[in-house]
Computed example of a mutant assay.
Amino acid sequence: MTTQDVRAIANRSNANERTATRTFASSTAIDTGSWRERARWMTASWTRARAYATEDGKSGEEGADVASEEGEEIEGEENDEIAKLRGELEEKDAAVADLKDRILRTMAEMENLRERTRRQAEDAKKFAVQGFCKDLLDVADNLDRAISTVPEEEIETDVEKIKAKLKSFREGVVLTEKQLSSTFNKHGVAKFNPEGEEFDANLHMALFNVPIPEGSDAKAGTVAAVTKTGYTLHERVIRAAEVGVYQ
């Protein structure tokens, strides 16, 4: 190898070394710039984050205060509403208790009224004829007087005295019968005698048939004889007349 070859190799080696040095320096400069830019960006980001955190902290505290105030206000409204509902419930309970008391009192009054009405109905049924019986007492008194006019020990004595007493007795009986009829009429009781009238099954009870006499104007189906008069109470038949009917 000649001296020129050695020099050429040395020159190429130096050139390569310089090229590598420049490349490394350039690469190092680029990396250093990128790191600095990145550091500046991170610093700015951290500063902004800190500022945001501070602002968020203040906003959080203010929001917490507002939320606390709103919570207290809502809680107060809820307490007022609960108190109002509790008052209304107490009023309703009082109204229900009053209504229950009224119902119980009404039921008791109805039961008392039912019992009182039952007793009154029984008394009315038992004493319905009290006035009628009281009016008949005068009739009974007159019958006693009529009987007393003819003492039993004087029946077979003087005929003239007996006639006089019988006359008085008859007058007393007639008077008693009139008084009895008046009492009947007063209470709506009426006597009827259907002799000569057309037979009516609603008013009469036929006990026997009577043949029509020759030359008589009587018609078949009319009442020929009355064995027991009939009575009505306010126009309702309480006893049909017992009769014989022309056949």
Rank of each mutant, 00 (worst) to 15 (best):
E156D: 11
E198F: 06
K161N: 12
D135N: 03
A140K: 09
K167R: 13
E171D: 15
K178N: 10
G188M: 02
A206L: 13
H187V: 04
L207S: 12
D200M: 04
E154A: 08
A146P: 09
Q179Y: 03
P211A: 14
V189R: 00
N185L: 04
V150F: 04
L203V: 01
E160H: 13
D200I: 01
T149C: 05
F132D: 00
T149R: 07
L180K: 04
K167D: 13
A190L: 03
N193P: 00
D200P: 02
E154Q: 09
L166E: 08
S181D: 05
G188I: 00
D144V: 10
H187G: 02
M205W: 06
E197H: 07
M205R: 10
S181W: 00
V150R: 03
L175M: 09
V150N: 03
E152H: 08
V150T: 10
N209M: 15
F184Q: 02
F169A: 10
T176G: 06
P211I: 14
L137V: 13
K163C: 12
E171T: 11
N193D: 09
G196N: 10
F199W: 08
E160N: 14
E160R: 13
G196R: 09
K186H: 06
H187I: 02
E177H: 01
L166Y: 07
L175C: 05
L203Y: 05
N185I: 01
F184Y: 02
F192V: 01
R145G: 11
P194R: 07
L203F: 02
L203W: 03
C133E: 14
E154L: 08
R145P: 05
F208C: 15
E160M: 14
L137W: 12
L136H: 11
E198M: 10
A146N: 06
D135P: 03
G172L: 07
K186N: 04
D200Y: 00
E195N: 07
H204C: 07
N185V: 01
I155H: 07
K163L: 12
S168T: 14
N209P: 15
S182N: 07
F184P: 00
D158M: 11
D200T: 02
D158G: 07
D141T: 14
R170I: 13
A164M: 12
L207C: 13
T176C: 12
